[in-house]
Every structure is written in C-alpha cells, then in structure tokens.
Amino acid sequence: MEDILPFLIGCLYAGGIYLIFHRSFVKLIIGLIILGYASNLFLFTISRITRDAPPLIPDDATQLTETFADPLPQALILTAIVIGFGLQAFAIVLIKVGFKTLKTDDLDKTTSTDRLDN
C-alpha cells in the first residue's frame, strides 16, 4: 500500500481538480472535498507511514517504543479534517444559496462581478 498510496493521491488530486473544472456548482463542491481528502492523504503519506502501529501507549508502559506511527501528522490531519469540514459545510450551503439567488447552476454564467462597468 505504501507504494500505491502516491498513485491514489495523484488520482484524487486529478479527480478533485477535474471536478472543479466542471460548470456545475455541485461538482465544484465535490471536487473541493476530494481535493481535501487528497491533501490529507498527501500530508499523511509524505510524513511516512507505518502499518498497524497506532501511537497509543500500552497500559503497562509509560513510553512508546519499537515502531509506531508518527502521532504528529495524525494530529495535524485531524485538525485539518475538522477545519476542512467547517469550510466545506459552509461552501455546501453557499452553493445552495447561490443556486437560489443566482437562479443558475452554471459557473460560466457567474461573471457579473468581474465585468467592466464601462
């Protein structure tokens, strides 16, 4: 798996960004979420991974010894997941509101704020 993960990450990145390139709001948001997975896994993998060794200190020990997974990236990813959730939840509701106020699901029709006024 260690060797497959980079490819999986690549696929997720590619899929996520390709979804963003679609014209539909909903695909945009799904793309953003998949990008989030991709970067969490990226962070996870690039800080090296260890199989089946959670960083839990056994009841009879006071320290972790032998092999164990690096707890720090886990903590970071946990924070990132939660933060990402906050942002994504907001974004999901935003596209709903966007759909209601803009009356469209088409990204290519949302160009009015950039328009030159003259």
Partner: peptide, 9 residues
C-alpha cells in the same frame, strides 16, 4: 497535476 503530486510524494 495529479501526476506531479504523485511524483512529489
């Protein structure tokens, strides 16, 4: 883009 990220990892 996906390929690049794989490569970087």
């Amino acid at each position: 883009f996906g390929g690049l990220m794989t490569w970087i990892v």
